[in-house]
């Protein structure tokens, strides 16, 4: 299975994973609340620039990942205009009629704004995934944000199961095929199939978990209140620089949009 992480050794990759969460979180909340199409657009550009410049993620690779997600934008454009609430489109010019369905201009604009907003949210989270090692993220959660280390290291131990689950699945499939069990069919057959794969997979996972737990207990996991770490993560000056810088740029973008009169009302402040 392929992970999205690209270790280019660039600025973003060397940051503490949590500082990326801290930097992107206010932007994410803000974008989720705006109603105009320009703010999400600005944040889409900002995020793409951050990933490409500070993360040095190859441009082709970025397009390969972010491109298919544009499907979302297109999908919202198709679905939304037909089901938008009546009052929203009242008084707006009719674009075209399709049988009993009427499409208004306001409906299209609304769909566009929503689609762009969702795309901006996805890109903001994608930029984290592209530049962060998941195990470092868990380490940082344990060391900086006080996630109980038993949970964190339990999760890390189980991370190691993931590739094994893949080979396990291949073995189960081969075993079924040898016995001549067919694949496909109706919903009933699908459910049977799900059970045939899921149950043995879960059973091996649980067995392996119990053995691993025994091994961990044998090495005094969680026996002492004091915990030492092999890999230490910290908040360095560059983390402060990044979080502060990103917030400042976001603020400037919002102020600029506001000055240009492009910033629509926020959802929470709307009266409708």
């Amino acid at each position: 299975m392929q992970t999205f992480y690209r270790d280019t050794g660039a600025f973003l990759q060397r940051l503490n994973p949590l500082s990326k969460v801290l930097a992107f979180f206010p932007a994410l909340v803000f974008v989720a609340l705006v109603t105009d199409p320009w703010t999400p657009l600005a944040f889409i550009v900002l995020t793409a620039a951050t990933v490409l410049v500070l993360g040095r993620v190859p441009f082709g690779y970025f397009l390969k990942v972010a491109g298919p997600l544009l499907l979302l934008v297109v999908g919202f454009l198709i679905f939304y205009p037909f089901v938008v609430r009546g009052e929203l489109v009242a008084g707006s010019p009719v674009l075209f009629t399709l049988g009993p369905l009427t499409v208004y201009e306001a409906g299209i604009l609304y769909a566009l704004a929503t689609a762009l907003r969702i795309y901006a949210l996805i890109l903001l989270s994608l930029s984290f995934t592209l530049t962060t090692d998941a195990t470092d993220f868990v380490r940082a959660l344990v060391q900086q944000w006080r996630l109980p280390y038993k949970v964190g290291y339990g999760a890390l131990a189980v991370f190691r199961f993931v590739p094994m689950l893949g080979s396990e699945l291949a073995a189960i499939r081969a075993a079924h095929r040898v016995r001549g069990l067919s694949e496909g069919g109706g919903p009933r057959a699908r459910y049977e199939q799900l059970k045939r794969y899921a149950v043995p997979l879960l059973a091996t996972a649980v067995r392996r978990a119990e053995r691993t737990a025994l091994a961990m207990d044998g090495r005094a996991f969680g026996a002492y209140p004091e915990r030492t770490y092999y890999r230490r993560l910290r908040f360095a000056p560059r983390d402060v620089l990044f979080v502060g810088g990103f917030w400042t740029v976001c603020l400037l973008i919002v102020l600029a949009l506001n000055a240009a009169g492009l910033l629509g009302p926020l959802v929470l402040l709307q009266t409708t």
């Binding site: 299975m1 392929q2 992970t3 999205f4 992480y5 969460v21 994410l28 990942v65 972010a66 997600l69 949210l121 996805i122 903001l124 989270s125 994608l126 984290f128 995934t129 962060t132 090692d133 998941a134 993220f137």
Partner: peptide, 10 residues
Amino acid sequence: VPFTPTGWVI
């Protein structure tokens, strides 16, 4: 987190 584009948000 490492396998889906929506990362930590998910």
